Amino acid sequence: MQLSFSAFNQIRSSLHVPTTSSQLLRHGQPKEKVVVVLGVTGAGKSRLSIDLATRFSAEIINSDKMQVYRGLEIATNKITDEERRGVPHHLLGVVDPDCDFSAANFRAMASISLRSILSRRQLPIIVGGSNSFVEALVDVDFRSRYDCCFLWVDAAMPVLASFASDRVDRMVERGMIEEVRAFFRSNADYSRGIRRAIGVPEFDEYFRVESECDEETRARVLAEAIDAIKANTSRLACRQLEKIHRLRNTRAWRMHRLDTTEVFRKRDGEAEAVWNSVVAGTAEAVLSRFLYDMEPAVCGGVMAMRSGARPLMAATAS
């Protein structure tokens, strides 16, 4: 079974979508603006997208191929309601977990969400780690209709690997094992739906033997499963980085790189200060130039728009 078309139609019917393409791009008018946030798992994409969405009039379209499914909030690392800070999210936890959701499905549904957001004069921010989904959406036809700003959230891989390992431990502490156990089936197909997510197949052996072995064996198998999750997360990050380099070098996507390495190296208030100045502050300046077609004026460390510039859309920096 492919995407549940009943779910697709339900989502589509709930959106206000312009009926003709002329309502999106009229002759003689500038292209409408779309922001795409790329990066490997754990680099800070979601955090940046929320920061930008609260500074500009924006809504977020999820492009993570596992987070589109309902369920496994911990294992798929879905952003929580509190972390969203009231920012509307699209294509997050909306697909039946047993369905296969392809890049073509994403392109169709993301296009609907994007038109709906633009019809309300909001800025669409597409964010997620599934670069194949983003590539399927942002083709030549898409670029001919929309003006895209690509933000690449990056960090040194050894630093990210350490953070990702710690994050897996925190996910286990939050209850990931019990969450995944609810999805365990003895005949499960780990090549379909949400069961492809890292953190699901790795626990298969543990769930099969946990009730039939001694405590020492059970602890060993569990530790092996957790180590496998960490290793597979690291491999995923490497594949994601390779794909980003291909999009930049072969597809010639012009990306604004934002280095979050020092954020991970700092602690508490120092990390927050580095994030606000080096990452979020830089991204805000980039978007201001992108949206308003002008350079920001900086006086005394405070960024402001140069007077006389005409906004290209109804997104305003706060």
Rank of each mutant, 00 (worst) to 15 (best):
E73R: 08
N187R: 06
Q23M: 06
G28M: 10
E215H: 11
S165C: 00
Q67K: 14
A314D: 10
C238A: 04
L160R: 05
V286N: 06
A58G: 11
Q29G: 14
A225H: 07
S113G: 08
R12H: 08
A155F: 04
I117T: 00
R174Y: 00
T217D: 01
G199E: 05
G269R: 15
A271D: 11
L48Q: 07
S13E: 11
S116P: 03
G93F: 04
S22G: 13
V36P: 12
F183N: 01
R239H: 10
R85A: 06
M1L: 12
R310I: 15
D214T: 11
H27S: 07
C213R: 03
S113P: 04
R85H: 08
I125W: 12
V134E: 15
R257F: 00
R120T: 00
Y292G: 05
V35F: 15
V35Y: 14
A314V: 08
Q240T: 06
R174H: 11
G308H: 07
M294T: 14
G300C: 11
A7M: 12
C238Y: 00
A252W: 10
F106I: 14
I60T: 14
R248C: 15
T41P: 08
T217C: 03
E210K: 11
S211C: 07
E179G: 04
A314N: 09
R143N: 01
R246E: 06
F56K: 09
I117N: 01
L258E: 04
N77Y: 00
P124A: 03
F207D: 02
Y206T: 02
T260G: 01
A53P: 15
Q240G: 01
L236I: 05
L236Y: 07
A155W: 04
V278H: 02
W253E: 02
R170W: 02
D147F: 10
V140N: 08
A43P: 02
L241M: 05
I177T: 05
V172S: 08
E270D: 06
A110V: 07
I112E: 02
L291M: 00
V87R: 03
R208L: 03
G28C: 14
S63C: 13
A252M: 14
D147I: 12
C148F: 12
M171K: 02
V159Q: 00
R246Q: 10
S119M: 00
P18M: 09
S307A: 15
N105Y: 10
L291F: 03
C299Y: 13
V34I: 09
D268T: 11
A164P: 00
S111L: 02
N249E: 08
T217S: 02
A155G: 03
E295Y: 12
A136D: 15
N232S: 09
D98F: 14
E295A: 13
L160P: 03
D293I: 12
E205F: 07
I61R: 04
V286M: 04
A314K: 04
F133R: 11
